[in-house]
């Protein structure tokens, strides 16, 4: 259609007929759509404090300790030598489950003469505040690591670590001396992805089967 010679007069101006109404309809649609959608602000869920609060593995157990330091309540009056064949702890200690590998005698660690202390190699006593000295009798390499700071939990300052600025934890903060295998149960939930993200559990096909 060649209307350039005659000008556009007489012909319908399709530009006006089509574009202007289309734009008007879109205009209304856009405005209505924007006004109709209201987004409710989502409230961010707070984190559970136990997920991020530092705790040692036996933190709570240690707070409930009743025995340590008060052994004299019973043992001041009864210091008789025990039967070396008894493996199961008795009386007040019957709740203790001893699971310390080959180390299955109470008096390997506890000093017979003074129940408030632990046994050192030379038969003298170790104060319970120095419990690491006891563990070091067998676990010397780990003790060395612990002294150097590469074994165990630390908090505080990495720089200029003096005794006051660094919180160091002893063996028993994390390991139950009667069952020293590391135990920790306070696990936290997995990450979540936005709803629109489609994920698959990747474990399904091991790489060796991928060419099937």
């Amino acid at each position: 259609m060649n209307n350039s010679a005659a000008g556009s007069s007489g012909d319908k101006n399709w530009g006006l007929v089509l574009v202007v109404p289309a734009c008007a309809v879109l205009f209304i649609l856009f405005v209505v759509f924007t006004l109709a959608t209201s987004d409710e602000p989502t409230v961010a869920q707070p984190l559970e404090p136990s997920w991020f609060t530092p705790t040692t593995a036996r933190g709570e157990d240690l707070q409930n300790k009743v025995m340590v330091g008060s052994c004299y309540l019973c043992h001041a009056y009864w210091t008789g030598l025990p039967d070396p064949d008894v493996v199961r702890p008795q009386f007040a200690h019957s709740a203790i489950q001893l699971d310390h590998g080959a180390n299955d005698r109470c008096y390997n660690c506890h000093l017979i003469q003074d129940r408030n202390k632990y046994t050192a190699n030379d038969g003298s006593g170790i104060m319970h505040t120095n419990v690491e000295q006891l563990c070091a009798r067998c676990h010397g390499l780990i003790y060395n690591d612990w002294v150097a700071g590469t074994h165990g939990v630390q908090r505080g300052q990495w720089m200029t670590p003096t005794a006051f600025e660094r919180q160091n934890f002893k063996c028993t903060h994390c390991h139950d001396p009667h069952a020293p295998a590391f135990k920790f149960e306070k696990y936290t939930p997995p990450p979540v992805w936005p709803e629109q993200i489609e994920r698959q559990r990747a474990e399904a096909p091991p790489p060796s089967e991928k060419t099937e």
Binding site: Q45, L47, W51, F52, F182, K186, T188, P189, P190
Partner: peptide, 24 residues
Amino acid sequence: GRCIGCRKCVYACMKENNLSRDPQ
């Protein structure tokens, strides 16, 4: 050899670094 996968580091990091909770 020691990590037990408790993921507490993940959440401590979120708390310390003010990471977005939603979207996570």
